[in-house]
């Protein structure tokens, strides 16, 4: 997965317009980030990439870009 597509998936989970996420955002600082958005991210990672991650680990990475780089080095 490329970085742009990953951000589009995060847009979708956050219920934001496509192209909103730039990578510099911290998920838990984002207005539309809630428990449902986190569950959508968990599902997307699990269904598309068989990556099982805890919510704590997802937040721990800081920015969306840092999360992408960790998951897809």
């Amino acid at each position: 997965m490329n970085e742009k597509d990953f951000y589009l998936k995060i847009d979708e989970a956050l219920g934001a317009d496509p192209g909103t996420v730039t990578g510099q955002e911290k998920l838990d600082d984002t207005d539309t980030f809630d428990s449902i958005a986190m569950m959508e991210i968990l599902v997307f990672l699990d269904e598309d990439f068989e990556i099982e991650m805890t919510p704590e680990k997802i937040i721990e990475h800081g920015t969306v870009q840092a999360l992408f780089q960790k998951l897809f080095p």
Partner: peptide, 9 residues
């Protein structure tokens, strides 16, 4: 919710 979801899946 997200932690329970993560545990479940």
């Amino acid at each position: 919710g997200p932690e329970v979801f993560s545990f479940t899946i």
